[in-house]
Design a protein around this nucleic acid. Structure first.
Lengths: 229, 229, 229, 229
DNA sequence: GATGAATGAGGATTCATTCAT
DNA sequence: CATGAATGAATCCTCATTCAT
């Protein structure tokens, strides 16, 4: 319409234009929904707000996601799939010390996941997982299990190479996981830290790794046998 | 209650027949509400359910708490009665090693708080704190700050007595706190552990303390100076 | 407030008063709902309209009926239960001729059911039964089956007493039922009669009974054997 | 249409390759809509379902029918093509007895209309006519009035030829119509018959005609004068 | 104080209808 | 013409809150 006058263009007058963007809509909605779910929780997030933030109308959300719950599930799925394969491959050929590897592993996680909105998913699972048992199961299978497995592999490598003591792997994994969860919660919840304090995640990770490896004690490291089973 | 004054004791006035003592109502409501808020979250908890669980009618809840938010705040406040003075005193005269003290400290916490409904408050603050900034501040002042201070004191004692290295206290405190939060979340949320696994808290604490003290590494412990700051 | 002035009474100013009428509410709602369902059909009846017509607010309807469908079911139940026992008893001892009995039976039905709003239920079952298979089954068991049984008993009596020919009872029952349904539909649907015509139900019944008994033909009545079936 | 002009015939213009002939769209839509309106009623029928069943997209329905109501009206109109002229001619020269003629008339109706989807229109008018007064009027003029007139003619013929008593024609017509409506409703609604029973329409018609002619009574046929007026 | 009937704002969901492509 | 993505009014239903008893 080369000569159309924007000031009298009847289409322009007709209010907000309808853009046809079938391809990109779901993604835009998922981004908006992730933000809102993380910010306000599942129950307090209104579908219309998701729509507005994605720049569409209420009904459009239901065009792509049949219900609020399905939207939530889609948000969870969207933000957790298949990074573990990539990481598994990445760590398969790691050449440095296992201590470095553990440190690298946690730092990488922080910069790729923990510090992003994606970590809000974990916060969500903790906060509202109770209402979505199937989603929790999915999360356990797709996130928790592979994540723990990856950490376990790193630790096992340390043991195999004589770098780490022969420790209880389950507990050691939990130790690493606890640190990561602490970082997530520090980011998403004010209730973890003192009000006037902030946390430098990279420094925390570095410190945590160091402590985990070498301990607080000034004494000799314990031999494996005295470590509690 | 041999000397109770029958004229002012509302229980005595009504005789033994009244099943529910009026003055215990708020407490019963708070107990019921704590359970439900922890179990289902703020939004998903219905006032009527709180009332029913407390054995009163819907309207009665509003007699004692002017709104759902007030009920929530009261629940949190009620359960944040600082036991820290008691504990401060208790630990003031601790005579064992600082390692034992740390272990004792965490174990005591678990059995007196972490394993009880009281830990639900922490879960609540994490899950729903976002909607209640003033309550979070209250929680930070009443729980987080004294709690961290207590842990810090234990660690400082270890340093002062030459048992612990001269470590970064903030990070060390976070390390302890992370372990406690991990325990809480394991208890209140299915999203932390793999589905088929369970966690023995006492063993976890023991292991965690051991690792924290002595590290995973088979090498010599690091000297304080090389620990990241 | 002994001297309260009705013109400034803050309570009175507070809008429509809340009447507590637990006992009578369900009945009032069922009456309103029956009227509206009959008038507009199930889908076109809005819950709020039912509420308004019953003089209550939207939410009150859901206080007594958990959903629109439950309200509908209640309306159906309310308007059809247990008249058949009464009628069965009434007709058990009928002493007149079976022809009179049949006529009496239909006339009674018309005046107690057919001419009232209750017959709207039958119209509803025909119009919207498709969405409520369980209600239809209920209706069949509670209305159709006993109704047909009662008619059959009357006809059987006529045969037993030698007043009626030995006819096919199923078809004969249908003949009676068809007449009743025609009356119902004439009342509730404009699509059965010509626009400028009206139908006198009592006359129709009388005529129908007469025709059913004696036929249109000027010839001799058929003997049983030549009647089809 | 022997002289159809190929240049204006849209079918001929496009050749045989087009799978869906454009000009048949409205017809396909009307067929799909008839089925759905009869099956589910007006409100429960979704435009998209009509479109899907007709093999087109949602928007296309609105290309041919400006609204759901218009579609409904078109469905009804489309299916009320008076076949009465044809039938009037057919019956004009009927040579058998009037009893046979009545039987033939009803049987013909059943096989040409009652047993086909066309009877769905009558069901529709009964069920949803209330919302479409103008359509009902149309139906009355095009269907009810001519239909009743035809039946009346048959009955009048019987009277004129001395085969039938001098009965009240209006009521007699209603008697015939009631039987036909009963058949329609038995076909389209589960709410008319007992759940475990089925109805053989031809047998029902035969029986109904026999009863109408000769009555149930074993006594002499009534003379015209004692039949209620 | 206690009750629970009544209220009504709020939010999820549906679907007829529109319109850019 | 046909499509189907987008819209938003309409409606069911929930539940915190009120208040007459």
């Amino acid at each position: 319409m080369p000569h159309s006058n924007p000031y009298t263009d009847p289409v322009a007058e007709r209010g907000p234009k309808r853009e046809r963007r079938k391809e990109s809509r779901p993604g835009e909605l998922l981004v908006a929904a992730l933000d809102l779910f993380v910010e306000k929780g599942f129950a307090a997030t209104r579908m219309e707000e998701v729509a507005t933030r994605a720049g569409v109308s209420k009904g459009t959300v239901f065009l792509y996601f049949s219900s609020k719950e399905e939207l939530f599930k889609a948000v969870v799925r969207e933000n957790i799939s298949g990074r573990f394969e990539e990481w598994n491959a990445e760590f398969l050929n790691y050449e440095g010390s296992s201590a470095d590897m553990l440190h690298h592993c946690m730092t990488t996680w922080w910069h790729r996941i923990g510090s992003t909105q994606a970590s809000g998913i974990s916060k969500l699972m903790i906060s509202e997982g109770g209402h979505f048992p199937d989603i929790v199961e999915f999360y356990q299978n797709e996130v928790v299990q592979p994540g723990h497995a990856l950490i376990r592999k790193v630790l096992q490598r340390g043991i195999d190479r004589g770098e780490f003591r022969n420790l209880d792997l389950d507990f050691a994994v939990y130790g690493v996981v606890a640190a990561m969860m602490f970082l997530i919660l520090s980011k998403h919840s004010a209730a973890c830290l003192q009000s006037n304090m902030s946390l430098d995640p990279d420094a925390y990770i570095a410190n945590q790794v160091a402590v985990m490896l070498h301990g607080l004690s000034t004494r000799e490291p314990l031999t494996a046998m005295v470590l509690p089973r």
